[in-house]
Structure formats: C-alpha cells, structure tokens
Design a protein around this nucleic acid. Structure first.
Lengths: 106, 106
DNA sequence: TATATTTGCAACTGATTGGTTTCCTATAGT
DNA sequence: ACTATAGGAAACCAATCAGTTGCAAATATA
C-alpha cells in the first residue's frame, strides 16, 4: 500500500477530517455528517490516515472514535524545516539577484 | 487541472526536486541527472510544480532554469500552524478527553 | 546554412485513486 | 430474542496520474 503522510494530506477531504478531529475525537458517522460524503467514503479516508499512523482509533462499545496523532504531524514540520531556514534568513535574496540581472541587461 | 501544493508535494520525486532546486536553480536535464528518471518525467513534474506556483522558470538562451518559490512553501507552514498550537500546548490532552468520556459512560 | 542540443507538448499505457454499492459482523436498545 | 445502528471489507467504476515514446520549436555550434 506504501502510504506516507504527504500522500495522506494530499486529499482535501482528508485534510478537513484531520482538522475536524484535531481537537476532539469523533466517530466516522459524526465526521461524515460534516461533509457531503457518505460514511463509507469517510471510512476509506480514515483507513488511509490510520495506515500511515496519522490517526488513532479508540473503540467504545460499537462506536469507534478517531483522533489525530498530533506527534505524526511533526514529520511534515520536520521536512519543512529545511525550507524555513531559507525563507527566514535569505528572504528576498532571489529577487535581489533577479533585480541585479535586470539592471545589468539595461 | 486543479493542482494544489499539497498534491504537488505528495510525490516523493517532486519533493526531491524541490529540495534539489531549493538552494540553486537548475535545468531539467541537470535535475534528471540526479535521479533514475528520464528528462521527460522530470519535465512533467516541473510543469506540475510550476502550475501550482511552487517553482518558477527563468529562460537563459535555450536553457530554462527552475528555482523554488520559497514563499509558496509558507502555505504548508500556515496550514501546519493550527496543529503546532496543539502539539506545543495541549500535549496529551486528547487522551484525557477520551478517558473522561469512558468514565462518564460507566 | 546544416547539424546538434535543450526543452516543451501531445498521445498512449498501466497503475492508482476516490467514491459508490453491497454485504457482513458486532453492539445497543426494546 | 429481535430489530436498529455503527462500522469494516470487498468488489466495482470512472477519473486521474506517473511514466514512456515521439515529435516539433528554439537556440547553439560548426
């Protein structure tokens, strides 16, 4: 199945689900009520999210509560870190280079 | 076409390309040399990255240099911000909520 | 001017994706 | 025990995707 987090958050519905259950654990039916989708579609998304450990389940009787594995989200943050360095320190250096090139042409 | 950044970074090859050109603009051929792919495959990835404005081109004679639009990467960071709040301040509060629910049912 | 190089673009192919439908199991409530 | 509800799993379908192949346009070089 080879799922990774980046593929998991590629789908807008899945991102919405993540946001939805970030603060409060929810059942598949409750989640589906928030979208224009069927429970089964949500269920499939939840399986993908669970497979890459972005989401964890917690059975409670016949209901299953899904909640966000916030720690896993840090992996995206970790990947972003390398670029954060660039956009923080070398802010508009690229634009400067372009401006310089433009000037030289004239 | 409806491309967004999250879909763009879903592909591992595209993430590698992004990392590669983050520090230095490169031509498609030069980028392809760094992978086990053909130039055309890289070219398609670059088109997708360009479409969602994650990458910008700069023609120089018959060569086209591709470089990262670092500003656009911030959009991912912006989306992550909401969760950063959670993993920084309310560490394992979710488990507490579930534990409380469990207690109330009994 | 003729040839080689760099690149984009379109068409095709096989694999994957999101969604629906259907069926099954397990629990809750009567 | 019976019915209703919650949910997962498999089969299927249309759409999309990544990669390849082939070709055309533009630039460089001889």
């Amino acid at each position: 199945m080879r799922r990774d987090i980046f593929q998991a958050i590629a789908d807008p519905t899945r991102r919405a689900i993540i946001t939805l259950i970030a603060l409060q654990a929810m059942t598949p039916n409750a989640i589906a009520d928030n979208f224009n989708t069927t429970r089964q579609a949500v269920s499939k998304h939840l399986r993908i999210l669970t497979e890459c450990e972005l989401v964890k389940q917690q059975q409670q009787g016949r209901e299953i509560y899904y909640s966000l594995e916030v720690e896993k989200m840090k992996e995206i943050d970790k990947w972003l870190a390398q670029f954060r360095k660039i956009w923080e320190t070398r802010f508009n250096q690229l634009d400067n280079v372009l401006a310089t090139l433009k000037k030289q042409k004239r």
